[in-house]
Structures are given as C-alpha cells and as structure tokens.
C-alpha cells in the first residue's frame, strides 16, 4: 500500500469531501493561499477550490467558531481550524454554549454539522501557551464528539466521517504527527466513530493510549516484548463516543491496564477511562489501574524540563512493570 503522511491524509480527506459535497468549506487563520495553514494541511486547497471555500479569517477564534456555527445552521458543512488547540479557550463560549447546545436548545429543529480541527501536544519547544492537551475540557461538554487519530489511515478515515456527521465534532491532531507516514489506501473509505483499534495484540497487560502517546506505547511494548511482557495497545480513536467494550474485553483478557495520555493527570482523560474500567470490569482486574499522564503543571519552555513532563517510553515501561508481577 502507498505510504503518505498524516498531513497529506488529512488534506486528502478535506479535498475528497469538498469535491463530493459543495456545502463543505474550510475556514481559519492562514489556511488560504498565502500561508496554506500553519502545518500545511490546507496546502493547495485554495488554488483548487477558490478563496470562498478556503477562507482566511481575522485573528479571532471566537469569530471563527461563531461563523462556522451560523453557517452550519444555514445548511453548510464548515471545517474550522484553530491554529493551536490552546487558543480554543478564546472560542470556548461558542464551542461549549452554542455549537454543542444549539440543536438541543431548538428542540432538534436545526443541526450543527461543524468540524473543529486543532493541534494539541508538547515536544516542539513552544512553551505553555502552545503545547497543551485539552481534550478533557471538551469531554465534559455534552453534545460534542471527540476524535483523536494517531495514524495517517485513522486521520483520513475519521475526518471524512466527521465531515459527514450531523453533530459537531472536535477533531484533535498532534503537532508531532503531521510528518509521520503510514499506509493509506487510494480507495474511498471511512472509519466509524466509537470503534477502538487494537494497534498491537498482547496478553499480559493492556495499554490504552491516545494520539501521539499511541506511538510511545507501541515503542514501550516493543521493548517490553524483549523482556517477556506481552503488551496489548488499544487506541480508542474517538473519546466521545468511547468504545468501552473494546477496553473492557481487553482487560478481561489481560487483567491489567495502564492508561497513557498527554493531558494533565488530574480529572484527565485517563481518569475517565480508569473510572469506566473500575465500574465495568473491576472483577477482572488483578492489579491496580495505572495512569501515565502529564503532571499538573504548565508545559515548560526549557527543553529538558519539557521532556521531563511528557510521558515517554521509560515512564510507560515503569508503570507496566509496577503492575506486571
């Protein structure tokens, strides 16, 4: 199969959906022909589809999401890009109180088919305002779906599903993933929401990891394999809806679970998954649930300190060994 980057996989999904459906359009800061997107995801789209469908916006996240919500209500399918996930805070009222609730507030008389794309994650030395992983904020807002693809194949298939979904979808990418390559078929495909992917089968311990952490978990699993510990790595791919059954089934098989996420540990995604496992699979746990996540601190600018706070292969291996006895 051909290998393409995560960035190209996303662009293919945008392009194919724009070709398929005239109501699909892109808007955001510097997504147009002059800058082509901060991470070059929208490269070439303005040339192909015109400035009307690839719209540069003023530096106002609140306006970007407000415009997208209004357009969606009138029958369009906007894909809004926020340059850094951290800046979603500026659009929080539009996202949490408008996009997420409009359909409910109007008794189902309208729908809000918005996709809001943004990159999360640390590791590129751009400090506390551009490195956060804030997915847990949005998990706490009913009405939003949350997608976090870790591979090019997942990125393309899930973005197409997000664009076709009639609900608002938060689509979270990771800065360090844009350049990774992976197999992506030329043929049309979509990936349904709520279906986790077993990235690696194993029998001794389950690691549930999201986004870039999936890659670190896989690296840890390879190292642990050499030491005789057989790790199963599960990527939920969508946090809302969450494929609980896949996680529970894996725990029933391995009796042990480590949850690896890049967000802060307190009240984070890992807390939600851990609570779900405790509620639904307690009797299958042979060891305490382990979480590997970021400490409750702003992401430091200093590269050594930044590396210190991000979960890595070593901290994942340590957590696994604490419960595999």
């Amino acid at each position: 199969m051909r290998q393409i980057t995560y960035r190209d996989a996303l662009r293919e999904a945008l392009r194919e959906e724009m070709l398929r459906d005239k109501t699909v359009f892109v808007l955001g800061e510097d997504v147009g022909r002059y800058w082509q997107g901060a991470f070059k995801v929208t490269k070439g789209l303005a040339e192909e589809f015109g400035d009307e469908r690839v719209r540069d916006t003023p530096i106002s996240e609140s306006a970007i999401i407000g415009v997208a919500a209004g357009a969606a209500i009138t029958g369009m399918r906007p894909i809004a890009e926020i340059m850094f996930g951290d800046l979603s805070a500026l659009a929080m009222d539009q996202i949490a109180n408008q996009v997420a609730k409009l359909r409910y507030m109007f008794g189902g008389q309208t729908k809000v088919p918005v996709v809001i794309r943004m990159p999360f994650g640390a590791g590129v030395n751009i400090a506390a305002h551009h490195s956060q992983s804030l997915e847990a904020w949005f998990m706490h807002v009913p009405g939003l779906k949350i997608v976090m693809p870790s591979f090019p194949y997942d990125a393309k298939g899930l973005l197409k599903t997000a664009i076709r979904d009639d609900s608002p979808v938060m689509f979270f990418e990771h800065k360090l993933l844009y350049s990774i390559e992976g197999p992506v078929p030329k043929e049309e495909y979509t990936i349904p929401f709520g279906v986790a992917d077993v990235k690696r089968e194993g029998k001794d311990v389950t690691i549930v990891a999201t986004l870039y952490m999936v890659h670190k978990a896989l690296a840890a699993a390879n190292t642990l394999r050499k030491e005789g510990i057989d790790v199963e790595v599960i990527d939920p791919r969508t946090l809302i809806p969450l494929d609980k059954q896949a996680i529970v089934n894996s725990v029933k098989k391995t009796s042990r679970i480590v949850i690896v996420t890049e967000d802060c540990k307190t009240a984070g995604v890992s807390a939600e998954i851990a609570a779900m496992v405790a509620e639904e699979a307690l009797d299958y746990l042979d060891a305490p649930i382990k979480r590997v996540a970021e400490p409750d601190t702003p992401i430091p600018f200093s590269p050594p300190l930044e590396q210190f706070v991000i979960p890595n292969e070593k901290s994942i291996i340590k957590a696994v060994k604490e419960i595999v006895y």
Partner: peptide, 17 residues
C-alpha cells in the same frame, strides 16, 4: 513459637472473583 501478624486478606478483585 512462630509469630504471625493478624491482618485482613489482601486480594485483587480478579482473584476474589
């Protein structure tokens, strides 16, 4: 005599099941 500390049994939920 052998001394033994009286304590509650610690067992994992899976072991209990």
């Amino acid at each position: 005599p052998v001394e033994r500390i009286k304590e509650r049994i610690i067992a994992s939920p899976a072991a209990k099941r």
